[in-house]
């Protein structure tokens, strides 16, 4: 079954067209990588799928398990199982991480018609997830992302993802700014979620992350279009020849 089906998706930001007709099918249980040079539209695609304001869809469609994803509010997309791991996670001074996560988890559970989780069971689950990501319990007491290092912020994204159990994760350059140890931890966190009910779009500039999260397919984005698709070997080829070589080839 196809979980995410994008057809002819066009979008603009501040009147400038960034996505110029994206076609992509992501089957249930698969992980696809989206690679491309800076400015190719990778992050725009992530934001359009998550429903961020200021990104205007001018054509095409995106369906999640048959439902019109683009018609939903951001919170409805989250309830439907979409999770965006931000490239630059937002700091929320005055909002405790535990309170934030429990509020989010219960909002999603309510929307899915599930029972809310009480504080005790939430802490149990959260602590178990933290241990799997080699994160300290103290993380729960801090304000959301405030004073976190780059690596901590990215791990906090993966931690949220582990708790919210999305069926479609969109990882927007989750590898940027990570050292190799943090990268491995993040990759393990994502790999732990892999299974028949979990799909992901892994957006990255570099091949490095894909050594640890091995994708089923790789798509190359250039100037708002997918210009090539292939297996994991495509990422390796790009690493060797660079995007410039690819653009020359495409032209």
């Amino acid at each position: 079954m196809v979980l995410l089906e994008i057809e002819g998706l066009r979008a603009e930001v501040e009147g400038k067209e960034i996505l110029r007709g994206i076609d992509l099918r992501l089957p249930m249980g698969e992980v696809h990588a989206i690679m491309g040079p800076n400015g190719s539209g990778k992050s725009t695609l992530a934001y359009v799928l998550a429903g961020r304001e200021g990104y205007t869809v001018t054509g095409g469609s995106a369906r999640l398990a048959g439902e019109d994803l683009l018609a939903m509010e951001p919170e409805a997309r989250a309830a439907a199982g979409v999770f965006l791991a931000f490239q630059y996670p937002v700091e929320l001074p005055g909002v405790g991480n535990a309170n934030f996560l429990r509020t989010a988890l219960n909002a999603v559970r309510r929307a899915r018609g599930e029972k809310e989780i009480d504080a005790v069971n939430f802490l149990k689950e959260a602590r178990a997830a933290l241990r799997r990501l080699s994160m300290a319990d103290e993380m729960l007491k801090r304000n959301v992302n405030v004073g976190f290092s780059g690596g901590e912020k990215k791990r906090n994204e993966v931690f949220q993802m582990a708790l919210l159990e999305p069926r479609l994760a969109i990882l927007d350059e989750t590898d940027s700014g990570l050292d190799i140890d943090a990268l491995k931890i993040v990759a393990e966190g994502v790999n732990a979620l892999r299974g028949p009910d979990f799909s992901a779009l892994v957006i990255t500039h570099y091949q490095r992350l894909l050594d640890h999260i091995v994708p089923d397919k790789v798509h190359v984005l250039s100037e708002g279009r997918i210009v090539r698709s292939g297996g994991p070997e495509l990422a390796k080829a790009l690493e060797a020849s660079g995007y410039a070589g690819l653009a020359a080839e495409a032209a």
């Binding site: 919170e75 989250a78 937002v90 005055g94 989010a104």
Partner: peptide, 25 residues
């Protein structure tokens, strides 16, 4: 900040209340 909260499933009204509460924290 609002979008971050909503992308995690928190409905807009609740997200706004959380941020106002944070302002008063």
């Amino acid at each position: 900040q609002l979008f971050y909260l909503r992308s995690r499933g928190v409905p807009e009204r609740e997200a706004r209340a959380m941020l106002v509460r944070a302002f008063l924290a």
